[in-house]
Amino acid sequence: MFDALLRPIIDKPLNSTARQIVKTNLSANAITWGGFFIGLGAALSIAQGSFLFGLILIATNRIFDGLDGAVARLRGPTDFGGYLDIVLDFLFYSSIPFAFVVYDQSINGFAGAFLIFSFMGTGSSFLAYAIMAEKHKVTTDIRGRKSFYYLGGLTEGTETIAAFFVFCLWPEQFYWLALLFGTLCWVTTSIRILAAKNSFS
C-alpha cells in the first residue's frame, strides 16, 4: 500500500550509492545473494532470541534489496536478475515467521504457520497476476522500473517489513500480531483476485 509512496524518498539515496557500486566489479546478483544471506542471519538471530539484532539484519536486508535493483537499472536489468530477486525475497519473507516458530513452537506455532500460509496467497496472487499482465502487455512504473508487473495491495513489501519490525520489538505479542497480519494478507489476496477478474475475464 505504501510502496509507491516511498519510491521518491528511497530512490535518490539508492541511486547515488548504486552509481558508486557500478564503478566496481560487484554485480546486482551478488548484492541480491548478499542481502539474502543477511536475511537468513536475521532469521537465525530471531530463532535464538536475539530480536533486536534480527531487526537490524532485516533492515540491512532491505537496503541490499533496494541496491540490487538500483545497480541493475544502471547496468541493464536481466531476466534472471529479476527472477532471482523475487524468489529470494519470498524465501526471506517466509523465514521470519518460521524463525519465531523455531524460537517458541508451543506458543508461536499456529500463528507462524498461519502467516506462512497467508504469504502463499499474497505471493501466488502477485506472481500469477504478473504472468497475465505480461501476456496482456500491461505495464506500470509506479513502483519503479521492474522486471515484471508489480500489483499492489494492502500488504506489500513496506507493510511486511513494518510487521517484521513490530514482531521483533514486541516478540511476546507475535501470536496475535501474526494472526492480524495474516488476515490482512488474505484481504490483499482477495483484492488481487478481484483485480484479476476485472482485468482478465
Rank of each mutant, 00 (worst) to 15 (best):
V138G: 07
F117L: 10
F114C: 00
I142L: 14
E134G: 08
F119C: 05
S118C: 07
Y150G: 11
F119D: 05
V138R: 05
I142Q: 13
Y149E: 04
S118T: 06
G152A: 01
F114G: 01
Y149K: 01
I131N: 13
L154R: 09
G121C: 01
R143F: 14
A130N: 04
T139W: 06
A128E: 06
Y150H: 14
L115M: 14
R143G: 10
G153I: 01
S118Q: 01
S118R: 03
F126R: 02
T139N: 11
H136K: 14
I142W: 08
S125W: 01
I131D: 13
A128N: 09
G144S: 09
T122P: 05
K146M: 14
K135P: 05
H136I: 08
L127K: 07
G123I: 02
D141S: 13
F117T: 03
D141E: 15
Y150R: 12
T140S: 15
T122E: 04
R143W: 14
L151W: 01
F119V: 06
G123H: 04
G144L: 02
T155K: 05
K135V: 07
K135Q: 13
K137C: 06
K146H: 14
G144T: 01
A113L: 12
I142P: 08
Y150P: 11
G123D: 03
